[in-house]
């Protein structure tokens, strides 16, 4: 049972990387990843909520009566989500406008509630912090990965905080963007293809 701290942290990056291995948190994954920076922003917001709620739930795990645990988890998660929402409005207003409804929707993100139920309410504070941080960063990386593929194919550029860091049409003159990939059906296709690639690489 007693697994190492490093294991709990690093499992989020490969073994249990949320969207690809657990296929959780797909809604924001499909909704906001039209650009790499939206993916990173969404990932960081989710990570913050995940770490804070994991810490608090694991601290209170012996106090919360098991019959009302889900209600307690929701209160804790919703509080942190609202904090993130206000903070984003105050400091990164543009990003907040772009992510829109997906920020409040972190409350019902399966990853956050899933980690609370499956991990934080059974493990120590330190383990839960490592777990939340690992899963959160894994999620951020996944969102950034799918966002970069979609933005690169769909718009031909990679833009981080307003600075284009890569422009396909300057490397391949005559490049026409596949607008399909930044639309909703394209999101499913890209996710499917990436899942497929992950499974091929990870197959023993």
């Amino acid at each position: 049972m007693a697994k190492s701290l490093a294991h709990e942290f690093f499992k989020g990056f490969w073994q249990e990387i949320p969207p690809f291995r657990l296929v959780l948190g797909i809604c924001p994954m499909l909704g906001v990843t039209t650009k790499i920076q939206f993916g990173i922003g969404m990932g960081i917001a989710t990570t913050f909520v995940l770490v804070c709620s994991n810490i608090l739930i694991s601290m209170l795990r012996n106090l919360i009566p098991s019959k009302v645990r889900i209600a307690c988890f929701i209160i804790i998660v919703a509080t942190f989500v609202t904090v993130v929402e206000l903070m984003m409005q105050a400091f990164t207003y543009g990003l907040f406008k772009q992510l829109g409804v997906f920020i409040p929707l972190i409350v019902v993100n399966c990853i956050v509630l899933g980690r609370a139920e499956a991990f934080a309410c059974k493990n120590s504070v330190i383990m839960s912090t490592a777990d939340g941080l690992g899963i959160g960063l894994g999620y951020t990386l996944s969102l950034a990965a799918i966002g970069s593929v979609r933005e690169l194919l769909g718009a031909g550029t990679l833009t981080v905080w307003g600075d284009p860091i890569l422009n396909l049409s300057s490397i391949f003159p005559g490049f026409e963007p596949f607008v399909f990939t930044v639309q909703a059906p394209g999101a499913f296709m890209i996710l499917g293809l990436m899942l497929c690639a992950m499974n091929m690489v990870g197959k023993k």
Partner: peptide, 20 residues
């Protein structure tokens, strides 16, 4: 437990709201 959680949560949110 639920009452205390809700109270603390409400207080914290009011504080952050005023602060930002």
């Amino acid at each position: 437990v639920l009452t205390i959680l809700c109270t603390v949560s409400g207080g914290l949110l009011a504080y952050v709201k005023v602060g930002t």
